[in-house]
């Protein structure tokens, strides 16, 4: 197993290198970060030349990539070069954004997984029941629903809920415009109250999106297993229904869902980007949108490198989990 993990990590190094080079070339050809400088009053051609040299833009793209790569690997991720901004360092900006997104995503994904698996198992055990039809049609509808529409709807009903609370003389509970800066204070109960108020709506939006896929997947794999020979044998031996379902079928039906859970990272990330934008969280999504708008190559490269590495790691986790859950799969 350890040998397998090491080999996979070694294979992913060239992929990451080529990927980062492709990204670098793309970012370098997509635009000139100094383009806006020309339109500023009092900026002479010499100033632009000086800025170009200080940013290394006069060198060929290979050299620039090499410099970026060596700096990046030695921990110097560079500084934002967007105009009109204090020169924020890339590393803290990206890690802060990642932390914000991570807090939001992990909770929502775990909830979605639990709920999706339960609904999927129930729908498979009671196949063609009203519950099954309801779960199936809901999942299908959620599949066809644009993520941002789900987020917008959830957000606006949250605002209306707040208005109702306010008309009853209570405080507005649900936060619809980003987490409060500086964390939460007060007694333990108050902190819990504020915490849930802040997280509830984006979590629901993200959860609804992932839930559909998990429940569909779990239902399909559970159905397949319930109709397999070893389940029939277990039943024939007189093992109780609940034991058959939980000990024999459920554990096997979890395998594909566990893989989906770890492979889903890319999709979850784009879902999180949209949810964050709607709810005004300063996470990876906001960082990407802002860096593209202001055209900030160092920030974009930091963003891309972090997400690409995470995706590679999650894919590896998916394969390892698969090997642990299903001993028939031999890794190596």
């Amino acid at each position: 197993m350890i040998r397998y993990i090491i080999r996979r990590l070694l294979i992913s190094i060239p992929i990451l290198l080529i990927g980062s080079f492709a990204c670098y070339v793309l970012v370098a050809t997509a635009g000139n970060p100094l383009a806006e400088m020309r339109f500023r009053p009092g900026v002479t051609e010499a100033d632009i030349k000086a800025a170009e040299i200080s940013l290394g833009l006069d060198k060929p793209v290979f050299v620039r990539y090499w410099n970026w790569l060596t700096d990046f690997l030695s921990g110097d991720w560079g500084q934002s070069i967007a105009l009109g901004q204090a020169k924020t360092a890339v590393f803290p900006a990206v890690t802060d954004a990642l932390w914000t997104t991570g807090r939001l995503v992990i909770g929502a994904e775990l909830l979605a997984l639990t709920l999706g698996v339960s609904v999927g198992v129930l729908a498979a055990v009671r196949q063609y029941s009203i519950f099954d039809y309801l779960a199936t049609s809901t999942a299908f509808l959620m599949f066809s629903m644009p993520i941002f529409c789900v987020a917008v709807i959830v957000k606006n009903y949250g605002i209306q809920f707040n208005n109702v609370l306010e008309s009853m003389g209570l405080d507005r509970w649900l936060t619809t415009a980003g987490p409060r800066p500086g964390g939460f204070s007060g007694s333990f109960g108050e902190v819990i109250f504020k915490y849930t108020g802040t997280f509830l709506l984006p979590t629901i939006a993200l959860m609804l999106i992932s839930f559909a896929a998990y429940s569909r997947f779990e239902r399909a794999s559970m159905l397949e297993i319930l109709h397999s020979d070893f389940v029939r044998t277990a039943r024939a031996k007189g093992i109780s229904q609940s034991r058959v379902i939980f000990r024999h079928a459920f554990r096997n039906a979890l395998i594909p869902v566990a893989t989906l859970f770890s492979l889903n990272f890319g999709a979850v990330l784009s879902g999180a980007i949209i949810t964050e934008t709607v709810f005004g969280w300063a996470g990876m999504g906001t960082l990407l949108v802002n860096s593209v708008r202001q055209f900030d190559p160092p920030m974009l490269m930091g963003w891309l490198a972090v997400t690409a590495t995470l995706i590679v790691l999650f894919n590896l986790v998916a394969d390892v989990v698969y090997g642990i859950l299903d001993p028939r799969i031999r890794l190596g």
Binding site: C23, L269, V292, I311
Partner: peptide, 21 residues
């Protein structure tokens, strides 16, 4: 390998950069 490569780069970021550039 090409598929592996494309899978690790988030589509949303590439699309954003291309559209901007």
């Amino acid at each position: 390998r090409l598929v592996d490569l494309l899978l690790i780069i988030p589509q949303i970021a590439v699309a954003a950069i291309v559209v901007k550039g």
